[in-house]
Amino acid sequence: MLLPTATYCGSDTKTVKFEVNPTDVRYQTTDGKTTGASPYVLNAGQVDRDRPSEPRKDVNGKITALGELRARLTGLQDDINEFLTERMELAKGKKPRLAKQEQRIESEIKELLDGGDGDDDADGL
């Protein structure tokens, strides 16, 4: 049985292992949740012409080993994409604090500069 795996290691030394459960339907389809056209585009009436083909079957109608591998890899790709998206959201949550700080500094600088302009104006320049 061909089972792909993945291991993530982040800057905070967090290690996460991704494994495939072949009995789970998530790992039995080539139609991934996080890949392909977005629901917004599909709901607007667009046809997804790049939709992946079904896993290949042999003459007996059984899915080939490589067909199964492709389906499992699709599920693993969804797992990784969802995990990294979550991590991105967390990172984004940290950013606003920094952004606020930057905004405050920027407004302080602007205030100082504006004040400087005002003084200049007062001097008749």
Partner: peptide
């Protein structure tokens, strides 16, 4: 960062899936 990792990993996996399908 995670954003660049997500884009790069997903793109390579897409390529690997195409290679698997082609071999199959």
């Amino acid at each position: 960062d995670e954003r660049v990792l997500r884009v790069g990993v997903s793109s390579v996996i897409d390529s690997i899936k195409t290679i698997i399908e082609t071999i199959d």
